[in-house]
Design a protein around this nucleic acid. Structure first.
Lengths: 223, 223
DNA sequence: ACATATTGTCACTATACGGTGACATAAAGG
DNA sequence: CCTTTATGTCACCGTATAGTGACAATATGT
């Protein structure tokens, strides 16, 4: 594709820069850098074109508009932890564990995976105020992954009375919210959500919740 | 709006409509209705002035600008559950309860109090993307209330090993997030966050977490 | 080499925004 | 009564946005 076309007529300009796919890619990458750098409030055709160093009309020519460009951007990276990332790779052994253990591992990987994705955090904040191609794609992936995880852990689900879906929903929602808010505030409920210690604190709390709520029944006293 | 003022100079029209405080109030109320109706993305001097039916220059004359108007609006209503609302009124009896009970009550009141405040939910979403006079005030109130609650429950805090601050932070954060997201998505982790049943499900899950994690130690085995 | 289609630049429209100055009109006070 | 002050209306400025048409420069195919 990168047809680094030969010079044609004379005048060697070392700039064979008339490459459609290259500029397309520059635009897509510009979305990412702009999103990570300035946030989504600054994301518009003018800003993206300026960041990419090309004319904004090419956004319309090559993508049809910002929505399509966003869609392309959404497919250009991994914005969400995959099942492998969440489970640590071996779902087989995870399935054998008690639910209190497996959910703790998953939540720990979830925190780690999201904390290192600055772009995803930005999109998470975006999702709070707007629904567009990008956020919908991310929402779909999230829901698919969680459903697949439930399927994966289904044998473990029998051993508990707790509402696993609701409790894990709460924990994941809490992580999402605190990540979003850490961009604008420092403490939430007295917890420092900007420091490493604060997140260690939250992580151990989450693991404690998993262990307390999903603990295997040792003495089947009731039912 | 229809300032049916007298036509020309003569004759007393029964419309003494040159009232500063009245227009001030109209502007403040316009912020509320606009915020509840169109969301904060539509909140600007032009929109507020149009909604109030007055000229936007009065926003500058009477308030100095949007930030001050927002500040006034923030002081014009109760956007956050008070301690009384969260505790149910009698903090004395609450203090006697085991922590698993008192936190459950507080969380239940928190959900109820926030679910009925549509405007607060809008501001919560706003906080995800921007920091302004209104959101800062709300953040301060929230932190103050939570700190006051901790003080109120301090006698109960001795009886547990759990990190009460971290766990309650998680639960409150989860409620905030799910309320925000319910405006744009229907299900989160398989839970229907738009239905009454879904929130009942979440509420029982939260209460279960409180009971499991803050349960009083019956058998003091360690320490 | 030439004609053609592609790639890119520029200028422009229309719209909306925050903000300000000039001016009309009403109330208040002498 | 007339003057002064407060209240409200209007027109405008500068800026930024999304989007489009015209045109230059380059690559491509014959």
């Amino acid at each position: 594709m990168a047809c680094s076309s030969a010079k044609k007529r004379g005048t060697a300009l070392p700039t064979p820069y008339r490459n459609r796919s290259a500029t397309r890619e520059r635009l897509v990458r510009a979305v990412g850098t702009l999103l990570a750098h300035k946030g989504f409030t600054a994301l518009g055709v003018n800003a993206v074109a300026k960041e990419a160093g090309v004319d904004k009309v090419l956004i319309y020519r090559y993508f049809g508009g910002m929505p399509e460009l966003l869609k392309t951007f959404a497919g250009s990276g991994e914005f969400w932890p995959s099942i492998e990332e969440l489970t640590g790779g071996d779902t087989a052994t995870l399935r054998q564990m008690p639910l209190s253990e497996s959910t703790a591992i998953i939540m720990r990987n979830y925190i780690k995976g999201l904390r290192r994705r600055a772009l995803t955090q930005e999109i998470l904040a975006w999702e709070a105020v707007e629904s567009n191609e990008l956020t919908q794609i991310l929402d779909n992936i999230r829901e698919e992954v969680s459903m697949a995880l439930f399927k994966e852990l289904s044998p473990s689900l029998k051993g508990t009375d707790a509402d696993v879906a609701a409790i894990t929903a709460l924990l994941a929602a809490a992580v999402n919210y605190l990540l979003i808010r850490s961009r604008t505030i420092r403490t939430f409920n007295g917890v420092d959500i900007r420091s490493e210690e604060g997140w260690k604190q939250l992580e151990t709390a989450i693991i404690a919740v998993c262990q307390q709520c999903f603990a295997p029944r040792e003495s089947p006293k009731k039912k």
